[in-house]
Design a protein around this nucleic acid. Structure first.
Length: 215
DNA sequence: ACATGGATGCTT
DNA sequence: AGCATCCATGTC
């Protein structure tokens, strides 16, 4: 099915006119992309017997992880390794890693090929496929807020795992979309969560007053 | 406050 | 080969 058709279907579900970003949207500096992605949308689209299954929502919280100069980034190794070489691929690629051996974390690669950087998606406002996401989250969902209010939670809700690493986020079952007519939102900035190094850097961004952010 | 959980990267 | 560390969550 053509991507344009898929985007139309999602727009119909959301009752909002959404579009695919241009490829160069993701080639921006990591910090800029982290800010731009707040207010954009993340969906997983699965085809089952001619049926299109859509789940996901609106990004309300992100964190920027920079290149080798950022001690908290997976790019901060002596050599490029099997895990972090994906950070050097072209912007708009998916990077999923396992956190504490338990949960998955979904990242959007930033910058052109050869330059490292990624944006961790930390929370979504759930908008589509609520039943599917609730099922995937299991018994841990007492309310909508519990679905996507953390990087591990949203991966579980959308069924994101390491097989999605390398996916093109403009042309795969994982899609980043944006509003054709963007609404202005206030963005706040603070230290990243759960890291032990470079804790002074304010590379976490979230929508002001959103009730869907983590903690 | 604490257990869970598995891979990664760095050091012997 | 061993080991400390790690971009979290749920329950205690």
């Amino acid at each position: 099915m053509p991507m344009a058709t898929v985007v139309k279907q999602i727009s119909a579900v959301l009752k909002t006119d959404l579009s695919l970003p241009n490829a160069d949207y993701f080639l921006d500096a990591t910090e800029n992309l982290a800010i731009k992605l707040v207010g954009d949308f993340l969906f997983r689209v699965e085809m089952h017997n001619e049926q299109t299954q859509i789940c996901g929502g609106r990004i309300v919280e992100t964190e920027a992880y920079l290149d080798v100069s950022d001690p908290a980034s997976h790019a901060a190794t002596k050599q490029i390794t099997g895990r972090n070489q994906i950070l050097y691929s072209t912007g708009g690629t998916a990077y999923v890693f396992r956190s504490y051996g338990v949960h998955h974390c979904f990242n959007v690669i930033a910058r052109p090929a050869g330059a490292a950087g990624c944006v961790l998606i930390r929370a979504l406002e759930p908008l589509a496929g609520i039943d599917l996401m609730t099922t995937r989250r299991g018994k841990n969902t007492n309310q909508l807020y519990d679905l996507c209010s953390g990087p591990g939670k949203l991966c579980q809700a959308l069924g994101i795992n390491q097989t999605h690493t390398g996916a093109n986020l403009r042309n795969s079952e994982l899609l980043i979309l944006q509003q054709r007519q963007p609404t202005t939102i206030q963005i706040e900035q603070g230290p990243r969560i759960g890291i032990s190094r470079a804790t002074e850097r304010k590379l976490r961004f979230w929508q002001r007053n959103s009730r869907w952010t983590s903690n």
